[in-house]
């Protein structure tokens, strides 16, 4: 069932690329495809984290400001110097892990609904990011990302794509080949049954939210490496985009079903649609409306719930 959905998701991507290539020659050329893949990789990173929590029936609304906070931590702690880059990367990922851990503890141990916990955490991170960076006017806030990071996007086959492939491999191995992965699906299908068969539901949940924070931070690092400098509101588009990518990728929003391969396809589909509409010079209002309609069409194709009768 969920393998079929992965095929649907891949089919959707191919269909969008084909339609684009027919209507706009050069759309599916390697140079254009490379740009799309790079842009889709950012969505792919956040969607990896979002997918993990969605698999257990949760949701992570704290992604935007975890991403933004990590991006600013990276530049303010590295100050653009290559020698400081490793430490800065560890710090930025650590911030993501810490916030994710907080989300997980709140959801699993305090019993706060995921929507509330992560929404509140998003506010907390937004306030901390804005306050500590004084609205991004602090002395070190104008720093650039270290040079090696910016090299992620150079060349005919950018290193960023290998990084995304690595994330894909990690997600696939984690979810399909490890005991932990089996437990994730077990919790997603039926938390109570999983608990009764000895799965540490709380531990799994905390681990997944922590990973989601790490992936949001990773996306922040990649985005700041891509753009050079962080900005405020950098992560805002990725809140709904991550959910859309997960669902277009064939992951059930109710939890328990889905593969990261589908999410890769979903991320690429969304970016391809946006890129195509931009190439066609569709004005912003039209892009928004068509984007919504495409998501709806995909949902009607393979995102419907079972009939009640």
């Amino acid at each position: 069932m969920s393998t079929r959905r992965v095929l649907y998701a891949l089919g959707g991507t191919v269909a969008v690329l084909l339609v684009g290539a027919i209507l706009h020659p050069g759309f599916a050329s390697w140079s254009s495809l490379r740009v799309m893949l790079v842009v889709a990789s950012f969505t792919g990173f956040v969607a990896a984290g979002q997918m993990l929590v969605v698999l257990v029936g949760g949701i992570d609304l704290s992604i935007p400001w975890v991403l933004n906070g990590a991006a600013i931590v990276l530049t303010t702690s590295s100050l653009g110097q290559t020698s400081r880059a490793p430490l800065a990367i560890v710090l930025a990922l650590g911030v993501g892990a810490l916030v994710g851990l907080g989300n997980g503890l709140g959801v699993a141990w305090l019993g706060v609904p995921a929507v509330v916990m992560t929404l509140g955490m998003n506010g907390v991170m937004q306030g901390l990011t804005l306050g500590l960076s004084k609205g991004l006017t602090c002395a070190s806030c104008g720093s650039y990302a270290p040079e090696p990071l910016r090299g992620l996007f150079d060349g005919a086959l950018p290193a960023q794509l290998f990084l995304w492939a690595g994330v894909g491999l990690f997600m696939t191995v984690l979810l399909t080949l490890t005991t932990f992965g089996r437990r994730v699906y077990a919790v997603g299908v039926n938390p109570r049954a999983a608990f009764l068969s000895g799965v540490g539901v709380r531990g799994v949940t905390v681990a997944l939210y922590t990973l989601s924070g790490v992936f949001a931070a990773l996306a922040g690092i990649a985005l700041v490496a891509y753009g050079g400098q962080p900005s405020l509101g950098l992560g805002d588009p990725y809140l709904f985009e991550s959910i859309a990518a997960v669902v277009v990728g064939g992951v059930s929003i109710l939890g328990g079903r889905g593969h990261y391969l589908g999410v890769i396809a979903g991320s690429l589909t969304l970016v391809a649609v946006t890129t195509f509409l931009q190439a066609q010079r569709v004005p912003e209002y039209g892009r928004l409306m068509i984007y919504g309609l495409v998501i709806l069409a995909i949902l009607f194709a393979y995102g419907r719930e079972k009939a009640h009768d």
């Binding site: 949701i59 709904f240 959910i243 859309a244 669902v247 929003i253 109710l254 928004l288 409306m289 984007y291 919504g292 309609l293 998501i295 709806l296 949902l299 009607f300 995102g303 419907r304 719930e305």
Partner: peptide, 13 residues
């Protein structure tokens, strides 16, 4: 279609 997904799509529209 799940409410959160439906309204996510129509939000954009």
């Amino acid at each position: 279609i799940a409410p959160i997904l439906t309204t996510l799509a129509t939000l954009s529209i």
